[in-house]
Protein backbone atom coordinates (compact mmCIF):
# COMPACT_ATOMS: atom_id res chain seq x y z
CA UNK A 1 0.00 0.00 0.00
CA UNK A 2 1.13 3.53 -0.71
CA UNK A 3 -0.17 6.69 0.86
CA UNK A 4 0.51 10.31 -0.01
CA UNK A 5 -0.88 13.45 1.63
CA UNK A 6 -0.77 17.05 0.46
CA UNK A 7 -1.96 20.29 2.07
CA UNK A 8 -4.13 22.68 0.04
CA UNK A 9 -4.45 26.35 0.97
CA UNK A 10 -7.47 28.55 0.36
CA UNK A 11 -7.20 30.93 -2.60
CA UNK A 12 -3.72 29.70 -3.52
CA UNK A 13 -4.26 30.17 -7.25
CA UNK A 14 -0.55 30.45 -7.97
CA UNK A 15 0.06 26.87 -6.92
CA UNK A 16 -3.16 25.57 -8.38
CA UNK A 17 -2.57 22.23 -10.05
CA UNK A 18 0.83 21.53 -8.49
CA UNK A 19 -0.43 18.74 -6.27
CA UNK A 20 -2.25 17.18 -9.21
CA UNK A 21 0.96 17.37 -11.22
CA UNK A 22 2.88 15.56 -8.49
CA UNK A 23 0.21 12.90 -8.25
CA UNK A 24 0.15 12.54 -12.03
CA UNK A 25 3.91 11.99 -11.95
CA UNK A 26 3.58 9.22 -9.36
CA UNK A 27 0.87 7.51 -11.39
CA UNK A 28 3.07 7.65 -14.48
CA UNK A 29 5.95 6.11 -12.56
CA UNK A 30 3.57 3.33 -11.60
CA UNK A 31 2.80 2.93 -15.29
CA UNK A 32 -0.97 3.20 -14.85
CA UNK A 33 -2.86 2.52 -18.08
CA UNK A 34 -3.17 5.79 -20.07
CA UNK A 35 -6.97 5.83 -20.28
CA UNK A 36 -7.30 5.36 -16.50
CA UNK A 37 -4.53 7.85 -15.88
CA UNK A 38 -6.36 10.41 -18.00
CA UNK A 39 -9.53 10.12 -15.90
CA UNK A 40 -7.58 10.24 -12.64
CA UNK A 41 -5.63 13.32 -13.71
CA UNK A 42 -8.76 15.21 -14.73
CA UNK A 43 -10.65 14.29 -11.54
CA UNK A 44 -7.75 15.16 -9.27
CA UNK A 45 -7.15 18.49 -10.98
CA UNK A 46 -10.82 19.52 -10.89
CA UNK A 47 -11.14 18.55 -7.22
CA UNK A 48 -7.94 20.35 -6.27
CA UNK A 49 -9.14 23.53 -7.98
CA UNK A 50 -12.53 23.20 -6.27
CA UNK A 51 -10.81 23.08 -2.91
CA UNK A 52 -8.72 26.18 -3.64
CA UNK A 53 -11.70 28.19 -4.90
CA UNK A 54 -14.49 27.14 -2.56
CA UNK A 55 -13.06 25.78 0.68
CA UNK A 56 -11.14 27.19 3.62
CA UNK A 57 -8.36 24.76 2.72
CA UNK A 58 -7.75 21.11 3.45
CA UNK A 59 -5.88 18.02 2.51
CA UNK A 60 -5.63 15.64 -0.44
CA UNK A 61 -4.81 12.02 0.32
CA UNK A 62 -4.03 9.36 -2.24
CA UNK A 63 -4.00 5.71 -1.25
CA UNK A 64 -2.99 3.09 -3.77
CA UNK A 65 -3.57 -0.55 -3.06
CA UNK A 66 -5.71 -2.76 -5.26
CA UNK A 67 -7.50 0.40 -6.24
CA UNK A 68 -6.61 4.07 -6.13
CA UNK A 69 -8.52 6.14 -3.63
CA UNK A 70 -8.50 9.92 -3.47
CA UNK A 71 -9.79 11.71 -0.39
CA UNK A 72 -10.32 15.45 -0.65
CA UNK A 73 -11.06 16.71 2.83
CA UNK A 74 -11.56 20.37 3.64
CA UNK A 75 -12.41 22.36 6.78
CA UNK A 76 -15.50 24.14 5.52
CA UNK A 77 -17.67 26.02 4.78
CA UNK A 78 -19.48 23.04 3.22
CA UNK A 79 -21.71 22.74 0.18
CA UNK A 80 -25.22 24.07 0.95
CA UNK A 81 -27.10 22.00 -1.59
CA UNK A 82 -25.23 19.05 -3.04
CA UNK A 83 -27.98 18.18 -5.53
CA UNK A 84 -27.78 21.68 -6.93
CA UNK A 85 -23.96 21.58 -6.97
CA UNK A 86 -24.14 18.41 -9.05
CA UNK A 87 -26.17 20.17 -11.75
CA UNK A 88 -24.15 20.94 -14.90
CA UNK A 89 -23.41 24.65 -15.21
CA UNK A 90 -24.30 25.52 -11.62
CA UNK A 91 -21.51 27.53 -10.04
CA UNK A 92 -20.94 29.60 -6.94
CA UNK A 93 -17.42 30.60 -7.97
CA UNK A 94 -16.65 34.23 -7.20
CA UNK A 95 -15.64 36.95 -9.67
CA UNK A 96 -11.93 36.44 -9.10
CA UNK A 97 -12.06 32.73 -9.87
CA UNK A 98 -14.08 33.31 -13.03
CA UNK A 99 -11.66 35.96 -14.22
CA UNK A 100 -8.92 33.35 -13.97
CA UNK A 101 -10.94 30.94 -16.07
CA UNK A 102 -12.10 28.72 -13.22
CA UNK A 103 -15.59 28.06 -12.01
CA UNK A 104 -17.50 27.09 -15.15
CA UNK A 105 -19.67 24.93 -12.94
CA UNK A 106 -18.61 21.63 -14.45
CA UNK A 107 -16.22 20.54 -11.70
CA UNK A 108 -18.27 18.06 -9.68
CA UNK A 109 -20.18 16.85 -12.73
CA UNK A 110 -16.94 16.12 -14.57
CA UNK A 111 -15.39 14.46 -11.54
CA UNK A 112 -18.34 12.13 -11.14
CA UNK A 113 -18.34 11.33 -14.85
CA UNK A 114 -14.71 10.19 -14.90
CA UNK A 115 -14.55 8.34 -11.54
CA UNK A 116 -15.40 4.69 -10.98
CA UNK A 117 -16.81 5.43 -7.52
CA UNK A 118 -17.89 8.84 -6.29
CA UNK A 119 -19.00 9.81 -2.82
CA UNK A 120 -19.49 13.23 -1.31
CA UNK A 121 -20.48 14.27 2.22
CA UNK A 122 -20.77 17.82 3.37
CA UNK A 123 -21.66 19.83 6.44
CA UNK A 124 -20.74 23.31 7.60
CA UNK A 125 -17.65 21.78 9.18
CA UNK A 126 -16.33 20.58 5.87
CA UNK A 127 -16.67 18.44 2.80
CA UNK A 128 -15.23 15.00 2.18
CA UNK A 129 -15.05 13.88 -1.43
CA UNK A 130 -13.96 10.29 -1.95
CA UNK A 131 -13.12 8.96 -5.40
CA UNK A 132 -12.08 5.47 -6.35
CA UNK A 133 -10.50 4.19 -9.54
CA UNK A 134 -10.02 0.63 -10.68
CA UNK A 135 -6.45 0.24 -11.80
CA UNK A 136 -6.82 -2.93 -13.83
Amino acid sequence: MMKYSYVINKDDYINAGKVSSQIKKILKELNVRPDILRRMAIACYEAEINMIIHSFGGEITLVIDNKAEFIFKDIGPGIKDITLAMKPGYSTANERARELGFGAGMGLVNIKKVSDEFNIESSTKGTILTLRFDLL
Partner: peptide
Amino acid sequence: SFNEKRSLQNRLANFI
Protein backbone atom coordinates in the same frame (compact mmCIF):
# COMPACT_ATOMS: atom_id res chain seq x y z
CA SER B 1 1.00 1.09 -27.53
CA PHE B 2 0.63 0.59 -23.79
CA ASN B 3 2.54 -2.50 -22.87
CA GLU B 4 2.69 -3.52 -19.21
CA LYS B 5 3.12 -7.16 -18.34
CA ARG B 6 3.79 -6.79 -14.62
CA SER B 7 0.84 -7.05 -12.27
CA LEU B 8 -0.26 -4.01 -10.32
CA GLN B 9 0.99 -5.60 -7.07
CA ASN B 10 4.39 -6.16 -8.65
CA ARG B 11 4.56 -2.60 -9.83
CA LEU B 12 3.52 -1.32 -6.41
CA ALA B 13 6.11 -3.44 -4.62
CA ASN B 14 8.79 -2.29 -7.03
CA PHE B 15 7.74 1.32 -6.65
CA ILE B 16 7.89 1.13 -2.86
